[in-house]
């Protein structure tokens, strides 16, 4: 049984880490990171079987891939907090000679990262390849991957959707951060995604939803349900509604904080709303 209270406390610390990393670097993407904090916390502290000693091939464990690499601060936080590298290293985010690149990379050898991402639309394809390798090796563990919703405007994503259904890649759970926002504004205004559940279903996927991706219990239940649908001949997608900027009152629900960081005064206001539960880096 998941310790919901502990997971929520961890998530609060992760949010502090996000605000502090991006404000200290004076660059980065806090909005989407805050919106996906429940998901990352649930995956790394409850759902996935994974080893922070980090075997790059992921043999014998679940693997996670981040396609929308710009929300690296939330990923770096959960990786550090779950033991992949020292928490103190979060202070180097986006700085010269750091392993914590602006967008996730393998080049500097940061444990927990298996492929670079940032140029959008590529992560689902890579995840499918990793899932196929697991099938060839009769490894029953799962691949989890997160994609932004604006990112679905990239054509490669739909190539990947078609492939996964045709080749019955059913050891893969794709999650879409359905926050309805992108850099230039709401997705409905920039480039409508249309009826997303119907589109994924039409491409042959098992479509599930998490109506509130900022509710820890809803995220855990949604991921548990997704797991039950794996191994049945269809790839599984979880369309997860989130609020960009969730957890900080003046950042929530707007695209403004997609790629903008808090100044000193705003940082103080934000951190005042987030209890330091595990000790700051």
């Amino acid at each position: 049984m998941a310790d919901l209270q502990q997971l929520r406390r961890t998530a609060t610390q992760v949010r502090r880490d996000i605000i502090r990393q991006t404000s200290m670097a004076a660059s980065g993407h806090p909005g989407g990171s805050l919106g996906c904090t429940e998901l990352f916390t649930a995956l790394y502290f409850e759902v996935m079987k994974h080893d922070p000693k980090f075997n790059k091939s992921g043999a014998g464990e679940d693997m996670f891939f981040l396609s929308n690499g710009h929300i690296s601060p939330v990923w770096y936080s959960v990786l550090a907090r779950s033991g992949y590298f020292p928490v103190s290293e979060l202070a180097t985010f986006r700085k010269l000679n750091s392993r914590l690149q602006g967008h996730p990379a393998t080049h500097e050898g940061l444990p927990g990262i298996r492929v670079a991402s940032g140029s959008l639309g590529q992560g689902l394809s890579v995840s499918i390849g990793a899932a196929l390798a697991k099938k060839l090796d009769n490894d029953p563990h799962l691949i989890y991957t997160l994609t932004g919703d604006g990112e679905l405007q990239e054509g490669q994503v739909w190539e990947a959707l078609m492939f996964a259904a045709h080749h019955k890649v059913d050891n893969l759970i794709a999650i879409v951060d359905w926050n309805g926002q992108q850099i230039d504004g709401p997705t409905a205004k920039v480039m409508s995604l249309g009826d997303l559940p119907a589109k994924w279903a039409a491409f042959g996927w098992e479509v599930l939803k998490i109506e509130n991706g900022n509710d820890m219990e809803a995220v855990l239940n949604g991921l548990a349900e997704a797991k039950m649908h794996t191994g049945k001949g269809k790839p599984v997608v979880v369309l997860m509604k989130t609020e960009m900027g969730f957890g900080v009152d003046f950042m929530v629900g707007t695209h403004v904080w997609h790629g903008k960081t808090t100044n000193a005064e705003q940082t103080e206001r934000a951190l005042a709303q987030l209890e330091e539960t595990l000790g700051d880096f």
């Binding site: 043999a59 390849g129 899932a131 990947a160």
Partner: peptide, 28 residues
């Protein structure tokens, strides 16, 4: 046959899938 993957006319997807297979220790 089990080590071959027909991708269809989708080269971008092919390169990504190849990268993923390589992560899993294959030589695509």
């Amino acid at each position: 046959p089990e080590r071959f993957f027909q991708i269809g006319i989708a080269e971008a997807n092919m390169m990504g899938i190849a990268a993923g297979l390589a992560i899993g220790g294959k030589i695509p």
